[in-house]
Design a protein around this nucleic acid. Structure first.
Length: 223
DNA sequence: GCATTAACAGCCG
DNA sequence: CGGCTGTTAATGC
């Protein structure tokens, strides 16, 4: 793709020099996935770095009983998969499109070239990893004690982390069942909790999704 | 009480 | 029909 196209879809493109930008852009292409399609399978050897341009992906792994565990969402502007490239190993998770999604794919050698040469790119990676770590620590801290509504509110708020997902739209298209998986609660309680949050004026419900009205309110919900 | 699963009817493409 | 939504009943921690 062209440097301009890359700048339009990736915030980290701004951190590259004039020399680096065309190199990066040349190694990135777009691909669309339909709801339910796998972007990456567990144990796949995928030599690529992925960015979500539109839609929602779910990363996690599936147990033998079909239960999904250890999941997190990736949405607008979120990039992932650098661990497998840097460590040169197979994927440790399944990545599935929860909604129809548009995904940018960077070739592994392009990633490694930026990793070896671009100061700005590495700064972005450090910031990305740091933010992701903070998000997981926050989950561990609140998971045991909090109620379903609070968990759901924080789960939704986390989808608007400006570093991890700088382009998440106000309206998120996502079935309540998948939202429940991200929050770690059942579909029925997800439905009830969504109605409570809507009653509080933090969100409104739309067909197959929700519209966020008050991100700060969700973040601070329940304490 | 609160959450989970199972099962239901209603809605919509 | 098939997927999503909203609700209720039965059960468990």
């Amino acid at each position: 793709m062209t440097p301009q196209e890359l700048t339009d879809i990736a915030v980290w493109a701004d951190a590259l020099t004039q020399d680096e930008l065309p190199q990066a852009a040349a190694g990135v292409r777009m691909k669309t996935f339909e709801r339910g399609q796998h972007v990456a399978h567990f144990s796949d050897y995928l030599d690529a770095w992925h960015g979500v341009i539109e839609g929602v992906l779910r990363v996690g792994h599936v147990s033998d009983t079909g239960q999904v565990a250890g999941v997190s969402a990736i949405l607008g502007g979120g990039w992932f998969g650098e661990g497998s490239i840097i460590k040169d190993e197979a994927r440790r998770y399944d990545v599935v499109a929860v909604t129809d999604a548009e995904v940018a794919i960077m070739r592994g050698d392009t990633f490694r070239w930026l990793f070896a040469n671009s100061v700005g790119f590495n700064r972005f990676l450090v910031q990305l990893l740091n933010e992701r770590l903070g998000q997981f620590i926050a989950i561990v801290g609140r998971d045991r004690t909090s109620s379903a509504v609070v968990r759901l509110a924080h789960t939704i708020a986390a989808m608007y982390n400006p570093v991890l997902f700088p382009r998440t739209p106000a309206e998120i298209e996502m079935p309540q069942e998948d939202l429940g998986v991200f929050a770690g609660i059942s579909r029925q309680i997800t439905n009830k909790s969504l109605q409570i949050l809507a009653n509080d004026g933090l969100i409104t419900l739309i067909p197959t999704g929700l519209k966020v009205l008050d991100i700060e309110g969700l973040k601070d919900y329940g304490g």
